[in-house]
């Protein structure tokens, strides 16, 4: 088993290195010069242009050859230094990301967990109730095929714009500042519902369909038939079927993570939610190399770690793989 884990981790490390290298390279292949963009936004007088250009070039390390920039990048990375944002100089990239991260997590984590839980439960229900199946299944197909951003726009238009039940944008009311108070919590929740729903509903559809099919498969399996032949109540058969069907769903969770994160980015932009999404858009529009790099690095690392955790956890929760790993009987 330890050999298996070691191999797994090695693969992840290699993936990480490759992904991070691509991440480093991407902004640099985008057309446009960030420093010149910065200078023209500064409306700097032409005399100052030259000085400022050389100052910023040196400050960002663009005056060294590309390969050296690459190595410096790794060196800084291991010190936890993601560099300074170009457009918000001199705010460190880490600071910008940490500021935005809680909002993104507030959307992502509940959306992923709740949609997984609810989608699986409803899918299992639909598998054994025809009427529910006839409504849940087509609805789930529609939901899972819907782009989160589009659903976000629809929700914003219907519930925020037209019906004025929820706010259109932001993470909390303008009169408030983030703090631990009931009023802030209320305002935060009020603003959170629509972007959360956009993510939740789409993911929910996917899980419901998957679970429904898996449950049907499990309920027709031999062990289910055997238990029924021995007179086991349907409750027990369903419990076993659900647990067994959950295993491939967990693997699916690891695969779906990347898609959910991407969806969260665009949903945030729709709702002007101050998370990584809006930060990313800003960074791309302004050619902020380091910020783009930093955000993508975060996302890559986050998804890889989550995948690794699920991979390792799976070994422990599925006895078949666990035993197989130990060289079973």
């Amino acid at each position: 088993m330890w050999r298996y884990l070691f191999r797994k981790v090695s693969i992840y490390v290699v993936t990480f290195v490759v992904a991070v290298s691509i991440d480093w390279a991407i902004p640099r292949f985008m057309p446009g010069d960030p420093i010149q963009g910065l200078l023209s936004r500064m409306q700097a007088q032409p005399q100052a242009s030259e000085e400022l250009t050389s100052f910023y070039t040196e400050a960002f390390g663009f005056d060294v050859p590309l390969w050296k920039q690459y190595l410096n990048f790794w060196a800084a990375l291991f010190q936890g230094d993601l560099g300074l944002s170009i457009t918000n100089y001199p705010i460190p990239v880490t600071e910008l990301i940490m500021g935005a991260l809680p909002y993104t997590l507030a959307l992502l984590v509940p959306a992923i967990l709740l949609s997984f839980w609810a989608g699986n439960k409803v899918g299992a229900l639909a598998a054994r109730r025809k009427t529910l199946d006839n409504t849940v299944l087509p609805m789930s197909y529609v939901l899972t095929a819907t782009p989160q951003m589009w659903l976000g726009i629809i929700l914003a238009w219907v519930f925020a714009s037209s019906l004025a039940l929820f706010p259109v944008s932001g993470a909390y009311g303008f009169a408030l500042q983030p703090e631990w108070s009931v009023e802030f919590a209320r305002s935060f929740l009020h603003h959170w519902i629509l972007p959360f729903s956009a993510l939740f509903l789409v993911a929910f559809g996917g899980w419901a369909i998957g679970m429904r099919n898996l449950i049907i498969y499990e309920l027709e399996a031999d062990y289910s038939n055997y238990l029924a032949s021995l007179g086991a109540p349907t409750r027990l058969v369903r419990k076993y079927a659900y647990r067994n069907a959950l295993l491939p769903q967990i693997t699916g969770l690891a695969l779906a993570l990347g898609a959910v994160v991407a969806g969260a980015i665009v949903v945030e932009i729709v709702f002007s939610y101050p998370g990584l999404g809006t930060l990313t858009l800003n960074a791309i529009e302004n050619r902020d190399y380091f910020l783009i790099q930093g955000i993508f690095l975060f996302l890559i690392t986050g998804v890889l770690i989550a995948n690794l955790v699920i991979d390792i956890a799976y070994v422990f929760i599925d006895p078949r793989t666990r035993v197989g790993m130990q060289g079973g009987a």
């Binding site: 408030l176 703090e179 108070s181 009023e183 209320r186 959170w192 519902i193």
Partner: peptide
């Protein structure tokens, strides 16, 4: 949903120390 709608009428209730 009720909780979040209830926020819309967040008149009565604990005022934040900050609210303007």
């Amino acid at each position: 949903i009720a909780t979040s709608l209830g926020v819309a009428g967040a008149g009565a209730g604990e005022q934040s120390a900050f609210a303007l």
